[in-house]
Simulated assay, not measured.
Amino acid sequence: MSEISRQDVLDVLKPIWMTRNETASRLRGRLENIFAYAVSDGLMAYNPALWRGNLDRELPPPSKVQNAGHLEAMPLKELQEKIHCFLPPKNRTRQVILFTILTASRVGESAPARWDEIDWENKIWSVPPERRKDQKKYPHRVPLSRQAIELLKGIERKGDLIFCIDASNQGSKYSLRPLLQRMTGTKATMHGFRSTFRDWAAENGVPDTVAEKCLMHTTGNAVVQAYQRSDLLEQRREVMQAWADAVFEKYKEL
């Protein structure tokens, strides 16, 4: 492994970076994770798959790569410009869209959220196992940014459900897409905001493992998962606050 160089990594990534960028970005992240273990074990002197100050000198950032198959993902700069479309968040549509963006979650996780899933003291939203796509048998903890807490505090309680969308009501869940597109005048999708978050994380030096855990993705193989049992909550808390600040860069209040 000590013979693997930055150029070796580039030789693997360059052929697919412009045409299959999402796959290439994930591959780079996996390599960075593997090499991090090698560096800590003394098998490598440095990590040749690091992005910032390394591969970013040779490869354009994911947000700049025009992938025809992923036009539904709104670039961060456009999101910053369009965020006003959801302000003030006085109705359930705006509220659930903003909450989903701020938590980088899936609509199937956020739309049916319940008030008893919110830990106000510790600023955590616990997604129950039945709504976890990865099928793990325990809740997924999502650290809530200042903006997310402010949003929730401004929502009038009308029952157990925060956004009044039942988990069994699939129609309500997926009707957000046309509403989002009509409100923003774009072809963006709700799921695309997760890609926006992932690109932002990659461009701002967020460790791959932390970014993937923010998205409730499984990281590493079975061996890595066995050793890496922490959900990195406090590291993710810093990331989610930085993400919220970036989204609301032009607007300091909801």
Rank of each mutant, 00 (worst) to 15 (best):
N221P: 00
R182M: 11
G108C: 11
M183E: 11
S175M: 15
A167W: 09
M190S: 08
I165H: 02
C164S: 14
K123F: 03
K173I: 15
V142P: 00
M183S: 13
Q225S: 12
V239N: 01
A113Q: 09
G108A: 12
N204Y: 07
L151P: 03
G171Q: 12
I124V: 07
Q228K: 07
E212V: 03
R141C: 10
V127N: 02
R236A: 00
S110M: 08
G171P: 08
V223N: 05
I165E: 06
P129S: 10
P112N: 05
F163W: 13
H217V: 04
G154P: 11
I118W: 07
P207W: 05
R229L: 09
N169C: 08
V210S: 00
P129F: 08
M240F: 04
V239D: 00
I155D: 02
Q170W: 12
S126F: 11
L215M: 09
R229V: 12
I162W: 02
E156S: 15
W200N: 01
M190N: 04
E203R: 06
V107Q: 13
F197Y: 14
S126G: 06
R131H: 10
K153M: 14
L144W: 07
S110A: 12
A167H: 12
L144F: 06
F163R: 06
L144M: 07
R229H: 07
P128I: 02
H191M: 08
Q170Y: 07
E234V: 06
Q225M: 11
M183Y: 11
L233G: 01
C164Y: 10
T219P: 00
V107C: 07
H140M: 13
E150D: 05
A148F: 02
T218R: 13
S110E: 08
S172D: 14
L180Y: 07
G192C: 07
T218N: 13
T184K: 06
F163E: 02
L176A: 02
D231A: 06
S126N: 12
T196D: 04
F193G: 01
Y138A: 12
